[in-house]
Design a protein around this nucleic acid. Sequence first.
DNA 1: ATGAATTTGGT
DNA 2: CCAAATTCA
Length: 662
Amino acid sequence: MSGGCSIVWFRRDLRVEDNPALAAGVRSGKVIAVYIWAPEEEGHYYPGRVSRWWLKQSLALLDSSLKNLGTSLVTKRSTDSVSSLLHLIKSTGATQLYFNHLYDPLSLVRDHQVKEILANIGIEVRSFNADLLYEPWEVLDDEHRPFNTFTEFWDRCLSMPYDPESPQLPPKKIISGDLSNCPSDTIILEDESEKGSNALLARAWSPGWKHADKALAAFMNGPLLEYSKNRRKADSATTSFLSPHLHFGELSVRKVFHLLRIKQVLWANEGNKAGEESVNLFLKSIGLREYSRYMSFNHPYSHERPLLGHLKFFPWIIDEGYFKVWRQGRTGYPLVDAGMRELWSTGWLHDRIRVVVSSFFVKVLQLPWRWGMKYFWDTLLDADLESDALGWQYISGTLPDGREFDRIDNPQVEGYKFDPNGEYVRRWLPELSRLPTEWIHHPWDAPEYVLQAAGVELGSNYPLPIVKLDAAKSRLQEALSQMWQHEATSRAILENGIEEGLGDSSESAADAPIAFPQAMEMEMDENTLRAAPTIRNYEDQMVPSMTTSLIIRGDDESSSSDVGNLAEDSRVEVPNNQGMVRTDNMQPRVDVIPTTGLPDGDHLQAESSSTSRASSRERDGGVVPVWSPSTSSFSVGEDSSYLQRHPQSHQLINWRRLSQTG
DNA sequence: ATGAATTTGGT
DNA sequence: CCAAATTCA
């Protein structure tokens, strides 16, 4: 193969160390390293300002690392990654394409297309695992089915018969392909208006794989030991701060894992209980990241619809005023507001506070969780579709192992726990900074003279609670009983409809999505507090599928004239409690195709499969995730059987009781 | 003082 | 849900 030229397509693997796609490129000869900026492909999920800022720095550092090794990073601005790749192949004469796996639904579709299209023109395409300890299809239960609860999943990950791959060293040298015919496009990740705000970010963060390495070492030798003790302090530098590095793949999660294992053994031998517990806890957070990819792969719509179907019928309160108040940090609950102000001004939020603000969003305000998720996407430095979808689904009680929906956490009580001295609130809410600790988490209870002395005027310079907690509780109960009525009605309709045979029109009417609010930007000047609204929306909160256009574009059997219909049909379908799901052959399925017999690029598997266990899970594209619109044995009925596999699921039991009493 | 009821933490 | 902790009567 030497003498050949390969394109190494960088995406969220912006590192030279432990990068199997890059390593494969180097092994096979000349390398052209490419990054394609095609944000239009992301649909609603155009990256936010801080995330783009990070990406910009990270790409610059990757480029400089590649230059040290003998080539440079070619950047392309595109609206269509596939055609950009085709163009690059033509202009460079490359004969191979290597990249590392992604697991979000868009990438699954697009990467599958890339394989198909490029294979058809004789390009060898190989893809690798660089993002996970184990590929999603490796971690299965005894019946070879994917797990549906985190604990089971993670237990299996930690007791797999083989370890995750050991991290690879960076290549010593890269032989560059001929770049003269593929000039880089300037990609604009930061516009003029954003530069000012972004300047502050550089003081707190250092993107790039080298800095990721340093951050990892600093954490391992410092805060990790006390991680379990400190993890519930809202306002301290006791977390790893690795998540943005991990999101962009600047840091190999396998490297993190192996270093953690070393610490674990060390501290176990010393009998250091706290240290051991800390490692286990931190490992668990790595595990949750793994699980988010796992869920995204096995349930590709988890970012836009609830995994348990019942929330389809929840009457969300569609109120942009509420939404704005939440974003501005003017809900009247100090811990929530402090968190939202911190998020807005820094792009960062402690994990515990993320739970507080998102749970408040869903349970107290009863806003559609996808709005909150989208806002997180827009503002978080470590915005990550899979992780955030998992987090919001957990909060929303739509996972078998998530929280009950009818449980409201009390931000006041959480304030005592996460911010006992009120320092966090005082930092982010200057208007409350003179309030004594006793009242800092519930200023509405404070005597008038205390408020006066602190210069707090409730309803004026700091709001009264936008919704009282007991009001929120009764409102939630009411909403839940309404939800059950709707669920029952809809089930009746569906049962009738299915007898007739085909998807009836009532269904698509009911599936109208709740759109994202138009303007999600911050307006701090306006006082939007007002009486509680009662507008509710009974539709499932779906948006047009992000994947629709890609599916259709790839599917040549569909003529362009019925694109509209297909778009409608391929939009998400939510399984309900009966496990009734429309059998819709346009619904994407995820296939796993083992290397053996795979028409798709296994001809380079030089390694003998018997020499070691490793070869059976060979990282070099040994197993390829394939997103296929056709039916497959792997995931037919996947979603419909999701609940059936969890008849014991607490939500079902709770809610059945609820529906009877309501 | 002690069993029952309620809250809390957990992915 | 379920176990553990905490509050209640």
